[in-house]
Nucleic acid binder design. Structure first.
Length: 444
RNA sequence: GGACCCUUAGCCAAGCGGUAAGGCACGGGACUGCAACUCCCCCACCGCCGGUUCAAAUCCGGCAGGGUCCUCCA
């Protein structure tokens, strides 16, 4: 398996640090609002990565944080005259709901900044003790020029960064590039620390959590490209300072999502929230339709295409499942031995192993769909149909696409029989009534 | 000002030196009680110009257009 490593800027053979074990971390949301579909891209993508690694037999330890201490949350809390923790909890719940709707597994480790305060403080203290951080009147900054290779991940050199720096000059900092580890403040939620009453800086949160949860260099660190600089660069700097390593062996960054070729942002007023998109599976399908590193553009016209494709996919899988059920021939334990099906599954896996090329993997899904429809037209034997079902289910599980295949109840079978009888006796009015019942129950 | 990326049919999108995957739409057939679904066929010389090569969408150079990062942003 090959993965593009943003740190080295190369496609590399994937080798885990420990045999058969993958430790991975993805930067999670700052919970001050509902997430939009751009936020959903890394979530869905890395969920897919995890699914595939697990299918390959890796034991995956996956963590993704909730930033529940942040200026934006404080601001929101003041606006809504609500307690900050309530605000963040509200949006954590909403986030998890969106994830479930997008069929993302939510059983991963979910650290919150508020629950990690002791550890974060200890982490900052250690940086100060080792001379990598300094305290100025209660504010603590990280000394960037003490770390060599700063800028390697985002491929920028320090001199250019300083020259192009548009950050307002902060006289407390030794260098404009130094970033905040601890901010002295009494506004909003704050915590006691040896430095001052205040709260931690964003860049130190993830790295502290990783340090505690994994206790060593991890295999994969993921997030959106926009986090590459400065967030991930700063995480690496802190890790270099304390542990002399780059925090993660493979750094993975997904490309941005735009809306009608414009940046999706609140200021442009073109934000599409996940909760407002009713077609959740098509959304997931859409998010995986382009290679994760490429930019992805959302507009209603192209999204409609994916809605349609999803329906086609779902129809085929449901029909196949239904046929086997009605014939009492469903066999989920079957082994795939048919050469053409094996070849397609193989092609699918090859695409996924090639830096998670979901776009090409989806091609295999479509090929399977076509061949399923073909065999449903013919009188294909149940053995082959069961193998096809097994193959398509495997692919859909990896991609996290759920067609909701429920076993038929006795009542369902009777309903279906009655429908067929009505049709055969040309009682079309009754047939149509029964058909709409079947559709309603999601059977056909 | 610095760093970097993209441009493939009407639309979405693979490919990454060996002669254009796939999907949607369109058109032509078939199936069909009506709907829907489905099947078969058809559908591109890869932004423009030049270079390297036996061979280029794929490498190099120039031009045009679009975008990203350097600042909170997934």
């Amino acid at each position: 398996m090959r993965i593009f490593n943003s740190y080295t800027n190369k496609i590399e053979e994937f080798e885990t640090i420990h045999p058969n074990k993958v430790n991975m971390y993805v930067c999670g949301p700052t919970v001050y609002n509902y997430i939009h579909i751009g936020n959903a891209r890394p979530v869905v993508f890395f969920d897919t990565v995890k699914r595939f690694l697990e299918k390959k037999g890796y034991e995956v330890k996956f963590a993704s944080n909730f930033t529940d201490v942040d200026d934006k949350i404080i601001q929101k809390a003041m606006e809504e005259k609500e307690d900050e923790l309530k605000i963040s909890q509200k949006y954590i719940d909403a986030f998890l709901k969106d994830l479930s709707d997008l069929n993302c597994k939510i059983d991963y480790i979910q650290p919150k900044v508020t629950e990690y305060m002791d550890y974060i403080i200890k982490f900052i203290k250690e940086l100060i003790d080792k001379g990598y951080a300094y305290n100025v009147d209660g504010d603590v900054y990280f000394r960037v020029d003490k770390v060599k290779d700063y800028g390697k991940l985002s491929n920028q050199n320090i001199d250019d960064l300083i020259a192009g720096s548009r950050i307002d000059i902060n006289p407390k900092k030794e260098s404009p590039l130094d970033f905040t580890l601890w901010k002295k403040t009494t506004v909003g939620i704050n915590f006691e620390s040896p430095f001052s009453l205040g709260r931690p800086g964003w860049h130190t949160e993830c790295v502290s959590m990783i340090d505690d949860i994994f206790n060593e260099k991890i295999d994969i660190h993921g997030g959106g490209v926009d986090l590459q600089f400065p967030h991930h660069e700063n995480e690496i700097a802190q890790s270099q300072a304390l542990h002399c390593h780059t925090l993660a062996k493979y750094w993975m960054h997904n490309g941005r999502l735009s809306f009608k070729n414009e940046k999706m942002s609140k200021s442009l007023g073109n934000v599409v929230l996940v909760k407002d998109v009713t077609e959740k599976m098509p959304l997931r399908y859409f998010l995986l339709s382009t290679h994760y590193r490429a930019p992805l553009n959302y507009d209603d016209e192209s999204f409609a295409m994916y809605v349609k494709e999803w329906q086609k996919l779902q129809t085929a899988v449901k029909s196949l499942f239904l046929k086997l059920e009605l014939d009492h021939k469903l066999n989920e334990e079957i082994e795939i031995v048919s050469k053409d099906i094996l070849a397609e599954v193989d092609k699918f896996n090859t695409a996924m192993e090639d830096d998670f090329n979901t776009a090409n993997a989806i091609t295999s899904v479509q090929t399977m769909i076509k061949s399923i429809n073909q065999s449903l037209r013919k009188n294909t034997d149940a053995n082959y149909l069961n193998q096809q079902l097994k193959a398509i289910k495997y692919m859909m599980e990896v991609l996290g696409l759920d067609a909701k295949l429920d076993r038929l109840t006795e009542a369902d079978r009777i309903l279906y029989d009655d429908w067929q009888k009505a049709r055969n006796s040309k009682n079309f009015q009754l047939a149509d009534e029964l058909r709409s019942k079947l559709v309603e129950r999601g059977i056909i």
